[in-house]
Design a binder for these strands. Structure first.
Length: 956
RNA sequence: GCCCCGGUAGCCCAACGGUAGAGGCGACGCGCUCAAACCGCGUUCGGUGCGGGUUCGAGUCCCGCCCGGGGUACCA
């Protein structure tokens, strides 16, 4: 390794031949990257299996498992924003390895996805080819940054040996049901065979009460299928015949057309695979308590799941009872009307032929009959785009159905409305409106001249409209003598729910905003389902022995398209046209039969729901992970309810809800079935900030290349003309992309790493400024120069001891850097290292004492590993610096002999005293009073506060 | 509208409730140099978005605003 620098001598005569330039950095970096690869330096030993290695220096050591949210390998490659988190976790892992942990830090690729498929549709290039090329490009870019991954564990979700296990997990989920009574009341997933056994033995009644033995085979299968955690259901989706596919909400424009191609999109029910995530709603909320996650992310998950507790109440009508959900059953005496969502199924049955006699003009919307009014309103509501609904939210609209309902608690006849502020998909799609205690209901009641009854006494001085606070119930007595009056909200809720249940008018209930997860996609580039259909049309799981189900080759990657306006068409997926793959003869235990394969594929989320488990045992072909390996890396650490999981998971906040919720769900299913010992996948989570960038527009508003813009006196110029500065996401369209490749070429990977880590805390978003990178380079150059003579390449390290001051600074820095590393405060750790480097730079001529050079190199190595390796070798070591001990501060050198105390009088600094560090408080007090005697001018201090080691405050 | 996060020097950022400044960028000066670059040394600049409060003491805690960023969409 030492011969590297000799070649540097030939270039640019003015630069000292052995200066740490970008060119030299690049050479060092390439050599050490090769070294690490050849030596498998960052391979982490497993307890068991082929990746076990009892001779490894960290075999059996306390473990640390750190993971990054893996990237989708897009065609554009990485820009400088992507590696921020990766460099952070890498620096952290390198530090942890040096303090003795067995560190697992893998990286993989979320490689299924739409862009490769769309590219295939356009060009005919197989998505696998595009994907693999992109993965290779990413691997190269990441390697160039010196990230210390265990490369034996690099997986891509598109690898057949990987998705074989994705399919296996799907089968586990398909072959399970959620038993609400198991798991000590919280419920848990159990094998479907146990459910069937309960039906067979009669311990569990069938839904309609008939004996299991009298049911046909198909009837039995349907009952069982209704319990599965993965099931087929009709689900409303955005069907786009013009594209032949179902679209995600974000692919549909505000006016109900496809983003791509501008075709009409129809809301339609289609047969889809669903995952019963709602069964886990409670546990997904409650187990958040055990997670070390940012509070905002937990909050977002709680809100997304949206558990609300309250009651269902039935309001009798001529068309049967209307069931409403309310969180405030205690206010039922104040329910002065009902509101149904426009799509509610009872709306038509409720509406009479003509308006009742006392219908107010405001209620009819100007229509002659309830039927006309309702159909007009439905049309109006359906035509509104989401954006319009948001804009109109303040304006309450609706129409009277012409029908009345009976308030079960007091017999009052109350009108029934339809209005779009009630959503079909939430609760029961119907509410009891209590304007006295709900702002939206109040607004609606004002527009439609409906009565308002307060049933909670507002607090003193309240002058608003709806009162949503606590207070005693009023106006809440029924003619039959039942009363809530005087009770607080909590007691009144309890009392009314008891009354509803006792009298058959309703029951306490909990609802969730969370819905079951739509799990199928009409695409090609995803995991095939391990499912076939028999003659009955019901799904049949393939046995484990038939995995993997590999994607077949197809002629055409695009789905069949239709007349864009023909809503009555059905998706025909790319797989469905591979007829000799779809039609298959199999022996599933009862002789060879004909089956039809499922032709949907899984969504991109599937692979990311469990990849953190596969890193643990990537070569295992007997299990998705060996239990011993899972227990070691992810198992619970403490006896008292630790959830286990990845020790540190770092990624962007944009995955706060979907990815993190889906992955938690899958993990909990695997936990319930006994496949993993941890009940959460990610114990600690950090969201890294985004790196944003300035962009510049010229006078015509066009973006100009940001890197060619010059700044003069606070103004910006491009090609001589002044341009305007904006701030935004880094991207092609803003012409402000900076790539890590450019930074490496220009400065070297170590400089780039140090810069990204020093520019602020990991969690904070900040603007990129290439101009400032040079600071990091100067720092590394000073470190280099402290150890290597720039003119001769000779060592500048001497064996003389350091002076006392330098030694104290060194140990203070060691202590501080350790604290910062533990707390992931890389920016302040680097600041301390710069301080130390600046100190020894100042000592100049006499050489750098080994006792400083050695720990400095060790401490720099997590951030700038290549140059640290090179310098470590120059210090005379044969091996990598990766496994040497991180320096430990000598407590004796951290002690200070004397302390300067500022002395405040009434909050203003009036003097200073210098006292011994171990001085008694009384002595400090006396010295302080003496120091400010002049200011005190004889006044007697009322109070003297001595803050040990900090300051003295005198109050007069 | 609601919920989060943030506002400290020209810029990026530090600061257990204890003298507002660790580090970097920029600018300026000095040294080195024929001169410059590089390098080294040094200097500059704010009282912490605004208004109250708690406290001996507030950038830090509390209340009310303002500005910027993110999330969300009438959730009964």
């Amino acid at each position: 390794m030492t011969e590297v620098a000799t070649e540097a001598a030939v270039s640019a005569s003015e630069i000292p031949p052995f200066r740490y330039t970008a060119e030299l950095a690049n050479r060092i970096e390439a050599q050490w990257q090769d070294y690490w690869e050849e030596h498998g330096t960052f391979q982490a030993p497993n307890p068991v299996g082929p990746l076990a290695d009892p001779d490894h220096p960290r075999a059996g050591a306390p473990k640390l498992y750190v993971a990054d949210m893996f990237p989708y390998p897009s065609g554009a490659g990485l820009h400088v924003g992507h590696p921020l988190g990766y460099i952070g976790t890498d620096s952290y892992c390198r530090y942890q390895r040096m303090i003795g942990r067995n560190v697992l830090h893998p990286m993989g690729f979320d490689a299924f996805g739409l862009p490769a498929e769309q590219y295939a549709v356009q060009t005919g290039t197989h998505p696998r080819k595009t994907t693999e090329e992109n993965v290779e490009r990413y691997r190269g870019q990441l390697r160039r940054l010196g990230l210390a991954y265990d490369d034996r564990r690099s997986i891509a979700t598109t690898d057949v040996p990987f998705y074989r296990w994705t399919q296996w997990i799907f089968l586990q989920i398909f072959n399970s049901w959620y038993d609400r009574n198991a798991g000590g009341g919280a419920g848990k997933a159990r094998p479907i065979a146990e459910l069937i056994a309960e039906f067979e033995s009669g311990t569990r009644p069938t839904p309609d009460g008939r004996a299991w033995s009298t049911l046909t085979d198909v009837e039995r299968r349907k009952i069982v299928d209704d319990h599965r955690l993965a099931y087929v259901s009709e689900a409303p989706v955005n069907w786009c015949p013009g594209l032949g596919t179902v679209l995600a909400n974000e692919e549909v424009t505000a006016d109900g057309r496809s983003d791509r191609g501008n075709f009409p999109v129809f809301k339609r029910n289609l047969k889809q695979w669903m995952m019963r995530i709602t069964a886990y709603g409670d546990r997904l909320i409650e187990d958040l308590e055990s997670l070390d996650w940012p509070e905002p992310i937990k909050l977002m998950q709680r809100n997304w799941i949206g558990r609300s507790t309250g009651a269902h109440i039935d309001f009798p009508t001529s068309a049967g009872p209307v069931r409403v959900f309310t969180t405030r059953p205690d206010t039922v005496f104040g329910a002065t009307y009902l509101v149904l969502a426009p799509e509610h199924e009872l709306v038509e049955a409720l509406a009479p032929k003509v308006w009742p006699a006392d219908t107010r003009p405001a209620w009819t919307g100007g229509h002659d009959t309830p039927g006309e009014a309702i159909s007009a309103y439905r049309k109006y509501a359906a035509a509104k785009t989401d954006e319009e609904r948001i804009a109109d939210a303040k304006e309450k609209t609706g129409v009277f159905t012409g029908a009345y309902a009976t308030n079960p608690v007091n017999g009052a006849q109350i009108p029934v409305f339809v209005a779009d502020y009630v959503l079909a998909g939430y609760g029961t799609g119907a509410i009891m409106a209590v304007p006295g205690q709900d702002e939206r209901d109040w607004d609606f009641a004002e527009v439609f001249e409906l009565p308002i009854i307060r049933t909670v006494q507002p607090s003193e001085g309240f002058d608003g409209k709806a009162y949503v606070g606590d207070g005693p119930a009023i106006n809440s007595s029924s003619p039959q003598g039942f009363s809530l009056d005087g009770m607080g909200v909590v007691d009144a809720k309890k009392a009314i729910i008891e009354w509803l249940e006792a009298n058959g008018h309703g029951a306490g209930a909990t609802t969730y905003r969370l819905r079951d997860w739509l799990f199928s996609r009409q695409r090609y580039w995803g995991e095939p389902f391990p499912i076939v259909y028999d003659q009955t049309g019901l799904p049949v799981a393939l046995p484990e022995s038939m995995l993997p189900v590999e994607l077949p080759e197809v002629e055409d990657f695009s789905p069949k398209t239709y007349d864009p306006d023909d809503a009555d068409t059905d998706p025909e997926t790319p797989l469905s046209r591979a007829r000799d793959w779809v039609e298959v003869e199999l022996d599933l235990g009862d002789g060879p039969k004909r089956y039809t394969r499922e032709t949907n594929v899984m969504p991109q989320w599937a692979g990311s729901c469990w990849y953190e488990l596969r890193y643990l045992d990537p070569t295992n072909d007997q299990a998705f992970v060996d239990p011993a390996n899972e227990r070691y890396w992810m198992g619970p650490q403490a006896a008292d309810g630790d959830c286990g999981g990845v020790d540190l998971y770092v990624g962007g906040a944009e995955h706060a809800v979907l990815h993190l919720l889906y992955a938690r769900f899958w993990h909990k299913v695997l936990f319930d079935l006994g496949h993993v010992s941890s009940f959460e996948p990610f114990r600690k989570l950090i969201n890294q900030g985004y790196i944003q960038a300035y962009a510049y527009t010229d006078e015509r508003g066009r973006y100009v290349p940001a890197e060619e813009v010059e700044e003069r006196d606070g103004h910006f110029y491009y090609d001589g003309a002044e341009v305007r500065r904006e701030y935004g996401k880094m991207g092609k369209s803003l012409r402000n992309v900076v790539t890590p490749d450019d930074m490496c070429a220009q400065y070297g990977a170590d400089t780039f790493r140090v810069y990204e880590m020093s520019m602020g805390p990991l969690e904070v978003s900040r603007p990129w400024e290439t101009r400032a990178v040079v600071g990091a380079q100067r720092f590394l150059q000073r470190v280099w120069r402290a150890l290597v003579d720039e003119q001769t390449g000779a060592s500048r390290v001497v064996d003389e001891p350091a002076d006392e001051d330098t030694r104290r600074i060194l140990h203070r820095v060691i202590s501080g850097v350790r604290d910062d590393m533990e707390g992931l405060r890389f920016n302040t750790a680097i600041a301390k290292l710069i301080e130390l480097a600046n100190r020894i730079t100042g000592m100049a001529g006499n050489g750098t004492p080994r006792e400083v050079a050695d720990p400095l190199v060790r401490m720099v190595s997590p951030f700038a590993p290549h140059v640290a390796e090179e310098l470590w070798r120059r210090l005379g070591h044969e091996d990598t610096v990766a496994y040497v001990d991180f320096p430990v501060a000598d407590p004796a050198l951290l002690r200070v002999e004397s302390v300067t105390y500022p002395v405040q009088v009434n909050g203003k600094v009036r003097g200073r005293i210098e006292v011994a560090a171990d001085a008694e408080q009384d002595a400090v007090r006396e010295a302080a009073l003496a120091a400010v005697a002049e200011t005190l001018a004889g006044r007697e201090p009322r109070k003297v506060i001595v803050v040990p080691g900090r300051m003295v405050s005198v109050v007069v």
